[in-house]
Write a protein that binds this DNA or RNA. Structure first.
Length: 453
DNA sequence: TCTGGGGTCCTAGGACCC
DNA sequence: TCTGGGGTCCTAGGACCC
């Protein structure tokens, strides 16, 4: 019974012989985790070198709160999630610079970083907008050098600084990366196997367990109650006991800390399971008419993403909410509707979203955010088979309008065309605030930076 | 005046089936 | 008094990540 659990937990990539005693590593394949330091801020600095050496923050949508900080901003004690309106009064005194988030720029810079990283791996798994796992091989001396090459290549070809962590499992690679970040003497590269004997263990006995990938504040509290405070404590815990008390996820963490890889890597990215468009408003929305408008616009934004993914949705869910920070009436309307058949048709999706929200919201109550979620996704190119199975489905005759809208937007811009309330030429009052936005340097001809010598 | 958005995976529990 | 057992599928909610 228990053996079954262990083998399940280890997954198909399991390597029982890899359960070495701690990170005393043998030669063979290793995993590198490379991520960009302070990614959004670093992207802004590539195109505006005046930001070097200054405290800089990038703000969330609506210029709400801090999502990326330069080292100088961290030193000022600014925390991730800090609301901008609380920082703004001190900004001038501190010399603090704020930028609105510019996802078009970051997305393009991410693609460039990933392309360069891909040159160095026997395999690559892009894990997030700013980090990637890579397969690397060789003896310790070579791994260390290779890490330095990766760091230099990204700096030279894309312009952003990265850190590299190298180890036999993903969890340990993340941990090595964490060490590289906190020890400037390492020049941004840490291969666990190159550390002096006993050094990795010493660090593990100092880092709190919540410093690990996959261990958040909740799990951290429960672990502390059992006397498991540090990474070293968790590494020494019994994996089966951990599975029984917690979950298979944490059991994998324990095994990975001991050098046994159990998190399989997805060679190609799996299809998305949901597509969401959700935003808070610049000013609250409290009328039925405005909420109709919001739903129409959000559904079309989501539909465009769905079409870009080549997916169709079977379920449309909508939600809205009042402010968590105000004492007024609380209201959180939400509804889901199943569509007669999966579709990517923006007309069908928009009608469903508007219809689902109508009658749920309370007029007069100030809503500060809303969202549209598409789920039950399937690939659009499987539509033919589906049609044969469901000859009487009503929405079979997709209008092809998703393609038309996409083509018009690509040629004439985002605001060029829309359905119904989504076709507003002037942005409505509730649309997002972005006061400190940088240009789309790399994706818009008009925004191309000009250098003068 | 002002506090983000978009995902994933796992688990528990209910509905339903034979 | 006493009411099977085993399986699947689906959903909601929790926890986490960046």
């Amino acid at each position: 019974m228990f053996e079954t659990h262990v083998s399940e937990a280890m997954g198909s990539e399991a390597n029982a012989s890899g359960a070495a005693d701690g990170p005393a590593l043998a030669a063979g394949e290793r995993i590198a985790l490379v991520d960009v330091n302070n990614f959004y801020v670093s992207c802004e600095r590539v195109f505006d070198p005046r930001l070097e050496g200054r405290p800089v923050v990038v703000l969330s949508n609506n210029d709400g709160c801090v999502v990326s900080r330069s080292e100088e901003a961290k030193r000022l004690g600014i925390k991730t999630g800090a609301p901008w309106f609380q920082l703004a009064p001190q900004a001038q005194r501190w010399g603090l610079v704020a930028r609105s988030s510019n996802y078009e720029l970051y997305g393009d810079m991410s693609a460039r970083v990933m392309e360069v990283l891909g040159r160095f791996g026997t395999w690559q798994e892009v894990y997030s907008i700013d980090e990637s796992f890579l397969g690397v091989a060789g003896d310790e001396a070579r791994l260390r050098t290779e890490g330095g090459r990766i760091r230099d290549a990204v700096r030279r070809l894309v312009g952003v600084p990265v850190c590299v962590g190298i180890a036999p499992t993903k969890t340990l690679a993340k941990f090595a990366n964490h060490i590289a970040k906190r020890n400037p003497g390492m020049d941004g590269v840490c291969s666990l196997g190159s550390l002096p004997r006993g050094e990795a263990e010493r660090i593990q006995s100092r880092v709190p367990v919540t410093g690990l990938w996959g261990v958040g504040p909740r799990t951290g509290k429960r672990l502390n109650a059992l006397g498991i405070e540090t990474v070293a404590d968790l590494r020494a815990a019994d994996p089966l006991a951990i599975r029984k008390r917690f979950s298979v996820v944490l059991q994998r963490t324990v095994l990975e800390l001991n050098g046994t890889p159990c998190i399989p890597h997805a060679e190609e990215r799996a299809d998305k399971q949901q597509v969401m468009f959700s935003r808070s408003f610049a000013v609250p929305v409290s009328t039925l008419e405005e909420m109709d408008q919001v739903m129409a616009v959000y559904a079309q934004k989501g539909a465009a993403r769905l079409a870009a993914e080549g997916m169709r949705a079977a379920v449309v869910s909508v939600s809205a909410g009042t402010s968590r920070f105000s004492a007024g009436v609380e209201s959180a309307p939400a509804a889901s509707v199943a569509l007669p058949s999966p579709t990517q048709d923006p007309i069908v999706l928009t009608r469903a979203a508007v219809g689902a929200m109508r009658g749920r919201m309370v007029p007069g109550v100030p809503y500060v955010r809303a969202g549209v979620l598409f789920s039950g996704l399937s690939r659009a190119d499987a539509a033919g088979e589906q049609a044969m199975l469901e000859p009487f489905a009503e929405e079979r005759n997709e209008s092809g309008i998703a393609d038309v809208l996409g083509a018009v937007r690509a040629k004439f811009g985002e605001a060029a065309i829309g359905l119904g309330q989504g076709g507003l030429a002037e942005p409505a009052a509730w649309t997002m605030k972005r006061e400190f936005s940088s240009p789309r340097y790399t994706t818009e001809w008009a925004d191309l930076p000009v250098a003068r010598a």
